[in-house]
């Protein structure tokens, strides 16, 4: 079972992702902010990390800067955010994000497909 870490500050979204990816057959762990996510990501090996960009305590970019995805090539990171400015997308991509998904316009199945694609590839 592939391990998935969801880092999302909004409880509702967190829960919806949890439901979706459990159904899709993932071992899902939840983190409420960038710091919690960083602690977990450093302790455990995840196949995929779903990362929100705008969060309190530690935001997505800070997480990426500290976690250094390029040093963890086996961990696929997908940014899930409504912040879709080209600068933000570009910065996240440069820091090692594999895909940038605008969560407000992406229905669950599309999201699941994106995650499958990455984790399988």
């Amino acid at each position: 079972m592939k391990k998935l870490l969801v880092i999302e500050d909004h409880m509702g979204l967190r829960e919806s992702y949890q439901m979706l990816f459990i159904k899709e057959g993932y071992d899902v762990t939840l983190a409420e902010d960038g710091q919690q996510g960083l602690d977990l990501a450093k302790k455990h090996d995840y196949d995929v990390i779903l990362l929100d960009m705008l969060m309190p305590v530690k935001d997505g970019i800070s997480f990426l800067r500290e976690y250094k995805p390029l040093e963890h090539p086996n961990v696929k990171i997908i940014a899930f955010s409504n912040l879709q400015t080209p600068e933000a997308v570009k910065e996240a991509t440069n820091l090692g994000v594999k895909r940038y998904i605008t969560k407000a316009v992406t229905p669950p199945r599309e999201m699941a497909e994106a995650v499958h694609e990455l984790s399988d590839g």
């Binding site: 909004h10 979204l13 159904k23 969560k103 407000a104 669950p108």
Partner: peptide, 18 residues
Amino acid sequence: QTPATAVKQFLGLILEGY
């Protein structure tokens, strides 16, 4: 936007048969 997105996800889970 975030809660609206959450609603979208939950409704999507039902609609898509999850």
